[in-house]
Design a protein around this nucleic acid. Structure first.
Lengths: 182, 182
DNA sequence: CCTTCTTGTCTAAGATCCTAAACACCATGA
DNA sequence: TCATGGTGTTTAGGATCTTAGACAAGAAGG
């Protein structure tokens, strides 16, 4: 093998902030297989590699075309952002391919009535954002606020938090968090 | 598998005019494996597919990127060339819409009956040209065309190709290829 | 009609991939 | 300190890929 499939897969998985188990769960394979592939202990079948890449998601063509030695890009068009969410809560990641990324910058879009879920979120790091369209209800700890265009937030992610679009219009937010949870 | 690896491999092999056994010999695998892959009876490992494609030759990236439904045009009428110059110095561009072009120019002249040889040529890169006098028979992959003055060609040099002057008059071509191999 | 060569397909057996489960390690929190 | 939950790694064994060889069909020539 002239191309290093293992290193390439590991690079992709880590830039997306996924553990072997999480990627395996999304792909419908076992975490052991991810480990073996990344160590080049096995050469995966095309169908297996396809399943793994579906969990990112990424096409086989993109996988084999990807140039890891290329200098990191400085500019990205809207189409270059990688979708990580779902139709209700769209999370589009900036510079997803960039290796060693220290910051996660997202272009979020909440459909009317959409929310991050029933459970409150809590994780390491800090996060902040600015609302650019619509209105969002943000709960942090015991505090609840409703933010509109131009308004912003900043809090420690350890505090239980939840986003909920209480308006009729879709709400867009540019947010950042560190360290990369995605 | 959303992409049809078997059909894709079979299409490539046949356009290169190779039997399963001949491709297997070049690739260092067995003919049975080629057969099974083409029927999608197995999903080859990446390393096996790499070996098979080395026999063509073709990279994994090219294999998965290749769009068989939208093969780039091989032949252009005189009207299909794009004028880039002026009345004094006319510069008419071939395949202007083709992405990722990188070319250098040649002035070829084929005597009556001359050809590039019995064997089909195949090498890396791309080549293109315009007939300016006489007539030339050009075979590219499975396609055969006879081009006269003002007509042009553009194809990937990996496709087996051959030039043959089938007229009584000498034939002149302005051609370009990349990288500057031949 | 026979050979003889080609083609692609099929099948047992060996090689490799893939899974399930356990392992060691580290961080966090009771 | 111990428990818990996270990480990546390893291994035995079942599943799949790959090989070696046989098979059938078709074409060319005697």
């Amino acid at each position: 093998m002239s191309i290093d499939v293992g290193a390439r897969l590991r690079g992709i998985r880590t830039t997306f902030g996924l553990s072997q188990r999480e990627l395996a769960r999304r792909a419908g394979v076992t975490n052991g297989l991810i480990s073996l592939i990344e160590q080049n202990r096995v050469s995966p079948s095309v169908s297996s590699l396809k399943k793994v890449l579906d969990g990112v998601p990424m096409s086989l063509a993109e996988f084999f075309t990807m140039d890891l030695s290329a200098t990191p890009r400085a500019f990205f068009s809207a189409d270059d952002l990688v979708e990580l969410g779902n139709p209700q809560v769209s999370l589009r990641l900036v510079a997803a391919q960039r290796p060693g990324r220290q910051l996660t910058l997202l272009h979020e879009r909440y459909a009317a009535g959409a929310a991050t879920g029933e459970e409150m979120l809590t994780h390491r790091g800090e996060e902040a954002g600015v609302v650019i369209r619509g209105r969002i209800e943000l709960t942090v700890g015991g505090a609840v606020g409703v933010l509109g265009p131009g308004e912003a937030y900043y809090f420690a992610s350890q505090l239980p938090h939840r986003f909920r679009n209480v308006g009729r219009e879709a709400c867009e937010i540019i947010s950042a968090c560190t360290p990369p949870t995605f």
